[in-house]
Design a binder for these strands. Structure first.
Lengths: 250, 250
DNA sequence: CGGCGTTTTGACAGGCTTCAAGGGCCGTGG
DNA sequence: CCACGGCCCTTGAAGCCTGTCAAAACGCCG
């Protein structure tokens, strides 16, 4: 695992393509200088490989530079639950850096590029850059918020509501990450992935998707997802349209 | 809301009863001195009242000094999902301090005493005590871990497994918080609370509880919960017995 | 063309929800 | 002292939503 290329081929933080995203905050020169030294490598992972595994310790934490990933847990008999998806600018592996070991796995959904940061220097970051430390906590809190939303879905929403909720939120997040073109986002997952995220069977996910498509709220052909009626989808999901929130980077 | 008594009647941090818990780390004298000034009040809330509400901003964050609380979200039509329970030494309201507004509510399950910390000085904490900042991030990550576990339950576990999982984990946490006496914990919630946490109906929760009790893994009479066979309960839950983890305080 | 992964459909079974009603416990008030 | 109401627990019956099983259609790629 980890065909980390020798330093020098990696994207320098001051020309990070993600920094252009409107949803990320600006860095001060000092912060930027530190982050540049904090990032020690880039990791390229191909679709379908789990680069972080439940039960393992991890010496690194990562941010997604490009591509999609998902966090998941498996039960002994093979049942899988996808906890959340990670998009560009999202952080993964923080839990593994703070706790003794990972309690979930992370798998690349597409070809994936990650920025690599050493866990050993995390405390250094906390000591010298409280602003960045604050950002990291913010990120952790936001992740929790997303899971809270999913938890409500699995616990209290019907299959149709749940599906609408997930698609709406994925669309909004993908849009924030700059992945939308002409109102269309390429969703890289299969219906099996969706089913595992929704806590439903594959068959029923498919039928629910059909029903949802019949409302004309969405259009999903192949991998291209188009949101045709955001308000309708939000209504079906039983929610207001989620407001985008500015967030820190790193 | 908030019948905060004038300073002076509140428990000083250096004689905080929770510091005796084996699961909490030691403070350095400096840290302790800071935390003492960081805690500006104590809040007493009676059972059944929501002291933090979804959509509201909060100027404070809290730790539970004594009693039980739970985080929850409601849908428009009244469906409720309990996200997690908060026990002594747990922190609540962090999200509200970091984000613009609370995305969930928190209700006292029993008579509840909270330590109150001002959000306005949180950044001060981050600047001056990276060790405490680190702890807070750790707490946020741990909370996320707990929700991850619940998410798997709601998504992929049957009613029986799910119930076993929740009871096992609540028992372990209550025990860590020093709430067990002779292997018995007083669970202050009703079956309706359990149902809302499990994402099940009240009726089916009751029947599932009966089935679970028939296995002799647990005994639950009135409010007194006794774990009779931890390994069996863990097996039913489809998990190993969770290992207690040391954790920081504040 | 053949093979494989994904999507789609139909039929059936069952777990869970909903509806309904009764019982136990306890505090309040007549 | 007893009746009453409220809250919680318990149980039964009926029905729907969702899971499981099975098989076919589709699309992609070698």
């Amino acid at each position: 695992m980890g065909n980390g290329r020798p330093n020098g081929h990696i994207v320098s933080c001051d020309q990070c393509p993600l920094r252009a995203l409107s949803c990320l905050r600006e860095f001060s020169p000092d912060e930027l200088a530190f982050v540049k030294t904090f990032k020690i490598d880039e990791l390229h992972v191909e679709a379908g490989t789990s680069f972080l595994r439940e039960g393992a310790r991890s010496d690194h934490l990562y941010t997604v530079l490009s591509g999609w990933a998902f966090r998941y847990k498996m039960l002994d008999d093979g049942r899988r639950q996808i906890l959340n998806f990670a998009l560009p600018a999202d952080m993964v592996g923080l839990q593994g850096s703070l706790m003794h070991e990972m309690q979930h796995s992370v798998e690349a959904l597409t070809s994936l590029t990650l920025c690599v940061f050493p866990r050993s220097r995390l405390y250094d970051l906390y000591s010298r850059f409280p602003s960045l430390a604050y950002d990291i906590t913010w990120i952790a809190a936001r992740e929790e918020q997303l899971i809270d939303g999913n938890l409500v879905s699995l616990g209290r929403r019907s299959a149709l509501e749940r599906t609408a909720y997930l698609l709406l939120h994925l669309y909004v997040r993908a849009r924030e990450a700059g992945l939308a073109k002409d109102g269309v986002v390429v969703f890289p997952f299969t219906q099996q992935h969706l089913a595992d995220a929704l806590g439903m069977s594959l068959v029923h996910t498919n039928k629910t998707l059909k029903r949802l498509q019949a409302t004309n709220a969405i259009h999903w052909q192949g991998r291209a997802f188009k949101l045709r009626d955001k308000n309708l989808l939000a209504t079906i999901a039983g929610e207001d349209v989620p407001a985008p929130q500015g967030r820190p980077f790193i």
